[in-house]
């Protein structure tokens, strides 16, 4: 990419009838960056993220994700991104290795590559003992790690994490962020939504969405200075105060 940005969005708008869920947002994300996408429920986060993932089309505006246009190149975008949902969804009635193999297959990897990566994932997570267990029977923390690894099985350029740490204990959350940093070190861009404001501090840069608009994009440090706040929680509450949708 010419600018070194892996995500570039200009004037992205999504309307549902008369309701404008996402209202002319613009931002960019650099390669290897950990980008926090913050906003209260209903602020338009999910809608915007769906467009970035190639799941829906914008009403207007343009942008590129992993070098492909969000207007018309959705299928190509999908090949180059990974996605992990809020519930770290995997198939509970399939075994650990079956889940890995399935998603490898869905992304069109060769049989040999799938076998290699399956071993690699199980090795690096230390899940040898769980390999043949049904995913439904393994603890949440392991499921979360597994889901994250599977989201990266096709070596995507960007991984979208939709509230990846909901419902897990602080220790597991901390370990999970270690995995995120590792991935980021390997050059994978992390696009993460969260409503834990302490997690926002871990991001390189964050954007804050209020009522469909992005009201701030910067590093947590700069934002805290700008709003003279001691932490991101205060920044967020200052910015979200004027929200109409809340």
């Amino acid at each position: 990419m010419e600018s070194g940005h892996i995500i570039e969005i200009r004037g992205l708008t999504k309307k549902f009838g008369t309701f404008t869920a996402v209202d002319h947002i613009s931002f960019e994300v650099g390669k290897g960056e950990i980008f926090g996408f913050l906003g209260a429920n209903g602020a338009g986060k999910t809608t915007a993220m769906k467009i970035l993932c190639g799941l829906s089309k914008p009403t207007s505006g343009e942008g590129k994700v992993a070098g492909f246009s969000i207007n018309g190149e959705q299928e190509k975008i999908k090949r180059h991104i990974g996605y992990m949902s809020q519930k770290f969804s995997l198939y509970a009635d399939l075994k650990v290795w079956e889940n890995i193999r399935l998603f490898g297959g869905i992304y069109g990897l060769k049989r040999k590559v799938i076998a290699e990566r399956t071993d690699a994932i199980i090795q690096s997570l230390g899940m040898q003992d769980w390999k043949d267990s049904l995913v439904g029977s393994i603890p949440q923390g392991w499921k979360q790690k597994l889901a994250f690894s599977i989201a990266m099985i096709h070596e995507p350029q960007i991984v979208f994490l939709d509230e990846p740490t909901g419902g897990v204990d602080p220790e597991t959350r901390r370990k999970f962020w270690e995995m995120i940093y590792e991935a980021s070190d390997r050059g994978i861009t992390i696009f993460v939504t969260t409503h834990y404001m302490d997690e926002a501090e871990y991001c390189d840069r964050v954007s804050i969405m209020v009522d469909g608009q992005i009201v701030a994009v910067d590093s947590p440090k700069v934002l805290k200075e700008k709003y003279a706040a001691e932490n991101m929680d205060v920044v967020f509450r200052t910015l979200a105060r004027g929200s109409i949708r809340q």
Partner: peptide
Amino acid sequence: EKGTMELLLVSPVR
């Protein structure tokens, strides 16, 4: 319900 549909939809499978 389980959220796996999202995973399938963001995959390249139509």
